[in-house]
């Protein structure tokens, strides 16, 4: 909803759909025929299905830990957290196209995320959440 037609032309390097950006990633076809918008990072259906299968397997693994809590012992929490992080990053960068989009989007989103993690970790730390009592 930019104000004027001019602005859509003037927007500079940071602009979200920076055209240079996806020119640099020529591996995903299609662009050119529908103008500049939207063509970045659209993969064939099979690609997304594979990603979703991978995510599904991870979810299954996560759920599986429920029955082997005892066996995993100290490994349980770290392995769950790692799987969670992988799923998060996969959805964010592949489904949400962060991998192919302008870097400023990643920057904006992850700055919020990292800030949240740091601040709330410090917050819980002051409650001695991480120190076993």
């Amino acid at each position: 909803m930019s104000t004027t037609a001019e602005h859509s032309d003037h927007t500079d390097v940071e602009h979200g759909h920076g055209h240079d950006d996806h020119a640099a990633h020529g591996e995903h076809g299609q662009h050119g025929q529908h103008g500049q918008h939207e063509e970045h990072g659209h993969k064939p259906t099979s690609y997304y299905v594979k990603v979703a299968l991978f995510l599904g397997v991870l979810t299954a693994l996560e759920t599986a830990t429920y029955w082997v809590v005892e066996e995993l012992g100290a490994f349980l929490v770290p392995s769950l957290l790692i799987m969670m992080a992988i799923k998060f990053v996969v959805v964010a960068s592949l489904f949400m196209h962060l991998k192919w989009d302008n870097k400023i989007f990643s920057w904006l989103f992850y700055s919020g995320l990292i800030l949240a993690v740091l601040v709330y970790a410090a917050f819980l730390a002051t409650f001695r959440f991480f120190t076993p009592t």
């Binding site: 529908h34 939207e38 063509e39 659209h42 993969k43 997304y48 995510l55 599904g56 489904f95």
Partner: peptide
């Protein structure tokens, strides 16, 4: 999780008009 997959496919279809 699967709804995310279908969402991606919707976005992809929309991009192809």
């Amino acid at each position: 999780l699967m709804s995310s997959l279908t969402m991606v496919l919707a976005v992809s279809a929309a991009a192809q008009k």
